[in-house]
Amino acid sequence: MSAVTCELCPRGCVIPEGGAGDCRIRVNLGGRLRATTYGRPSAVHIDPMEKKPLYHFLPGTPVFSIATAGCNLHCLNCQNWQLSQRGGEEMEQVYRLDPPELIRAAKAEGCRSIAYTYSDPVVFYEYVYDSAELARQEGLANCFVTAAYINQHPLRQLCRLLDAANADLKAFDDGFYRQVNGATLKPVLDALVTMREEGVWLEVTNLVIPTLNDDPAVIRRLARWVRAELGAQTPLHFSRFQPQYRMRNLPPTPVETLDRARREAQDAGLEHVYVGNVLGHAGNSTYCPRDGTLLIGRVGFMITDYALTADGRCPSCNERVPGVWRSADLSGDRR
């Protein structure tokens, strides 16, 4: 019997012949590990970039978004558990979209980028990698929306093909990761630093869950870490929790909690701190960090104001706001 060890994510599953990894979709068949959802997404949508959320990356553009079944985390509050906590064979819908068809479909829909998202794209790594390579050749950008629970070597390889990422930092608390997500904190922190080092445009999301990770001290530590390790210009999104899946016992996050988190992060020196999942909140919009001018107004996923100059500057004080504002800003071979 030949078992294999999967080295893609920090779980390091040892998979006996005929068995599957913890993510359900990587299977040992005859002593070889197979990626069973390669080219077989179960979610295919065209979303606004703002939904990822990526607020400083090609704003207002449609992004062709895909996911397969399976996930290497098991968050009690998962919003997409019908997709993430199942194997491919349990899905009601499976699309046949091998990388060339995926790129073709994205282009036909007028999308300038592809997002690997919804469940966690780490587990359908090979599909992401091949698609991203082809997308790059065809002039499309690659966005990775992830919990960043991945080993260093595969991540570094992939980063060369990624243009943008929104990574969750679920709490600055290893106990929380173990209890709520079935994961650990350290590999996530390392992954975020790697994405930053590799030049991927990075935005970070923290879903604030009442009583579990809303302690101001924990939020402050998180914000200080982002500032120190990723930089003051890294956008940080505080997102509102909604009772879901196995966590229906808690209420939605009060808006005051999100306001407080935003202030904490701003006090920690972060320049772009957002509030998500609260329609019409002032924290949905982008402001000049120097003089407070409204630069991009947002309501939900809609852009209601756009005052940035073509090269991404504040029209009042000329401050350059970090981000990828147009395709021409995609750096070097990322263009």
């Binding site: 294999v4 060890t5 999967c6 080295e7 893609l8 990587r26 068949l29 070889r32 590990l33 197979r34 990626a35 069973t36 959802t37 390669y38 080219g39 077989r40 491919g88 064979e89 790594y125 090979e126 599909y127 990698y129 080993n151 070597h153 595969p154």
Partner: peptide
């Protein structure tokens, strides 16, 4: 189901 061989194992 796709039987693409996985990387990293």
């Amino acid at each position: 189901p796709s039987l693409r061989e996985a990387d990293y194992y």
